[in-house]
Amino acid sequence: MTILTQSSDSKPEVQTNQEEEEEHGDHRMFGLATFLVADGMTFAGFFAAYLTYKAVNPLLPDSIYELELALPALNTILLLVSSATFHRAGQALKRNDSKICQRWLLLTAGLGLAFLASQMVEYFTLPFGLTDNVYASTFYALTGFHGLHVSLGAIMISIVCWQARSPNGRITNKNTFPLEAAELYWHFVDGIWVILFIILYLL
């Protein structure tokens, strides 16, 4: 440590410390949250584009965009309920009750798949196609990008569910990260849907 004497100020400033050997915590959740902020910005860009189109671009002739509300409203409920069921799964895991945890996870994945199915039904009943006009394009881009997120989430839940199959599995109440990560992601996807629902269907 010759450096210490070389320049100016010295010991109080440069020192070693026992505390440093404390292990760094697990920052994966922090990293995931930052990533979700970034992901959210992609949606924000799409929303901004959609709102701009709506505000400044005139409607083309023959285009009416009265979207049916029943199905999307049902979808909103499906996703909100699935957020709650995922939460219950997390609570069950903390009690180390892997059976119950798995059941709640399966229910969540089921709700997600139901959402996707209902979204498909909506796609096939809509009076416009992807390339009809800019509103149609934006509608499909937004809902499609969100649907992609839901599909990814459903896959994640299935993996988590499999990993939580027993108290000796990879996911236990000692290693909750995969489940917590999937849960945070799922809540994020639900939150985005609520915003999407308000902007696309209600406004």
């Binding site: 860009g45 901004a48 584009a49 701009t52 189109y53 400044v56 671009n57 005139p58 409607l59 083309l60 992807l130 390339t131 009809d132 006009n133 800019v134 509103y135 149609a136 394009s137 934006t138 881009a141």
Partner: peptide, 21 residues
């Protein structure tokens, strides 16, 4: 690729929106 209309004026798209984004 898919000939959507985001930035195509013929489909009601808007080239200036691209510039903003």
């Amino acid at each position: 690729v898919a000939h959507t209309g985001f930035f195509n004026p013929a489909l009601g798209g808007n080239v200036v929106v691209y510039q903003h984004l």
